Simulated assay, not measured.
Amino acid sequence: MKISSLLDGARKQAEPVIRNITDDQLDARTPCAEYTVGDLLNHLLHVVISFQELAAKRMADFSTTPDRLTGDWRALFATEAEELVAAWAAPGADEGTSGQMGLPATTVGRMALLDLTVHAWDLAHATGQDFTPDPDAVTALFELVDQMGPTAREMNVFGAPVDVPADADPFQKLLAATGRTPV
């Protein structure tokens, strides 16, 4: 399945979560210990915008995260998430290497998919919302998490894997592999 199709499925699952976050929830804690809901929203918006640049084989600035929670940030997220899908649907976006990361474009696209999927769950969990991920996205992310897991843990992007029951569903297993405790 093309990365743009996977991103579109994840976008459709993430948008209602973002749309239903209220301003009074922005200071709430998230499963990402260093992030409040507002911080994580800002991070996710930055990822969605920056990975558009990487799809176009341009450099993306990850040195700072500008404050994007001004104005109608819910509409901004919806617009930028659609642009992310379009960027990865462009001819050649999923070929070769992508931006300054020097990684295969398909890996970079799946990194965006991981952020969009897992952080949507983080935000839903922090704000008391239900979240059902796109099942195709979950399937596509297992290989990435296995491949990038050790490096992501070294960089404190993932926590230590969490044990889950044998009958845990695939998404719970994916969350656990990133150091989250699925509830």
Rank of each mutant, 00 (worst) to 15 (best):
L6E: 05
K2C: 00
T65H: 06
P66C: 01
A55P: 04
P135G: 07
A10M: 07
G92Q: 11
A28Y: 08
A152W: 14
G92V: 13
M148Y: 11
T117M: 13
A56E: 13
D24N: 13
T70R: 11
T181A: 14
G71Q: 02
G159A: 10
P135I: 10
T64A: 11
K173H: 12
A89G: 06
D169E: 13
R180F: 11
W121N: 06
A14G: 04
L44P: 03
G159V: 07
W88G: 06
P66N: 09
A176P: 10
E154H: 01
A168N: 11
A55C: 04
D134L: 00
T151A: 13
G102N: 10
G96M: 05
T107N: 10
S4P: 05
A93I: 10
D24P: 02
L113Q: 11
W121C: 08
Q147F: 08
D61W: 04
L175M: 13
T30D: 11
Y35N: 12
Q147T: 11
T139D: 15
A33F: 03
D24E: 15
S63W: 00
H43E: 06
T139V: 14
A86I: 00
M148W: 08
Q13H: 13
R74V: 07
A75T: 14
K173N: 12
L123G: 03
V37I: 06
G179M: 14
D27T: 14
Q52H: 03
A137I: 01
L69D: 05
V157W: 09
V17F: 10
M59R: 14
V48C: 08
K57D: 13
E82Y: 03
Q129F: 02
P31M: 02
D24V: 11
D163I: 00
T178I: 03
D61K: 01
V138N: 06
A75I: 10
L40D: 02
E80P: 02
